[in-house]
């Protein structure tokens, strides 16, 4: 029994891990392949083609542009609302600020469908608004805003920005100047992380959007559901592939950002307390 060295548990665990991985990865590969296979029911021997991707482009290009557009608009709004909100919350501190922060997080806990329903009940009668992409934007902002606020808040909390701002003020810097030269540059990692999060979440959002959309305001994930229900399997798979290509770079950027954050030393703490001269 030469395998005794590692013990049978090791091999059992390895097998288990590999099969779980395969269980997760095989559908992704199959789905991606289906998107570029000429005929999925015949199989790969029918040949590879970009035809389905072309068809997806013809049918659904609009949903991709709308998704990107809403994601960017959502980013704009969350930056405008979220960064100042985080600043005020961090500055204020105390129980009231924490209460507000918790309230902001509520939309994450409440199912998207419920939020969508509430929005429709409240604003559904404003027909022009209901029919525009702005309606979906409102839902996305509600859902993503807490992520922006939290990301910025975390950075602000880690750098004692109050004292930094006081330092700048004693040197003669007014509020706007301090914000521009001290607060925002130092909060940048948090703003960046929050931004990537917001864009990624907005592009992938389905729950809310599915309830809020109209036939003319269809985003990519809604289009996906639509194609799964009504299109050939190859078209739906090709569509999925396109979604992947859009979302994966964002996810990678997020990972990379959080890692480079950890590598940076925390700036404001002295690393050595001895003098070198």
């Amino acid at each position: 029994m030469s395998m005794q060295r590692r013990g049978w548990q090791f091999w059992a665990q390895l097998c288990f891990t590999l099969s779980v991985c395969a269980f997760l990865i095989v559908p992704v590969v199959l789905s991606a392949l289906a998107g570029v296979t000429a005929n999925f029911f015949i199989g790969l021997e029918s040949g590879l083609t970009l035809r389905w991707i072309g068809e997806v482009w013809d049918l659904y290009a609009e949903t991709m542009f709308l998704s990107l557009w809403i994601a960017l608009a959502c980013l704009g709004v969350t930056l405008l609302l979220g960064v100042p909100a985080a600043y005020v919350l961090a500055k204020q501190g105390g129980r009231f600020a924490r209460l507000i922060e918790e309230t902001l997080v509520l939309p994450i806990a409440v199912p998207g469908l419920a939020i969508a329903l509430a929005l429709i009940l409240s604003y559904g009668e404003f027909r022009d608004f209901r029919a525009s992409w702005g309606f979906i934007l409102v839902g996305h902002v509600l859902y993503t805003l807490p992520f922006m606020v939290r990301a910025v808040l975390a950075v602000l909390a880690s750098m004692d920005f109050n004292t930094l701002e006081e330092g700048a003020a004693t040197l003669g810097a007014g509020f706007v100047y301090r914000l521009r030269t001290v607060v925002l540059p130092n909060a940048r990692p948090g703003i960046l992380a929050g931004s990537l999060m917001v864009v990624t979440l907005s592009i992938g959002e389905f729950n809310l959007t599915w309830m809020l959309h109209t036939p003319v305001t269809k985003t990519l994930p809604v289009g996906l559901a639509d194609s799964y229900a009504s299109m050939r399997l190859e078209v739906a798979s090709a569509y999925t592939l396109v979604f992947f290509v859009m979302i994966v770079p964002l996810l990678l950027a997020m990972q990379w950002l959080s890692r480079s954050e950890k590598r940076l030393p925390r700036n404001h703490r002295p690393t050595l307390d001895t003098e070198h001269e």
Binding site: G167, G172, N186
Partner: peptide, 20 residues
């Protein structure tokens, strides 16, 4: 007069140097 108009110099216990 607000702090930025007083023309004082201040040294803080935590230094408050700008890390950026």
């Amino acid at each position: 007069l607000p702090v930025e108009k007083r023309n004082v110099g201040m040294v803080f216990q935590s230094y408050a140097l700008f890390p950026n």
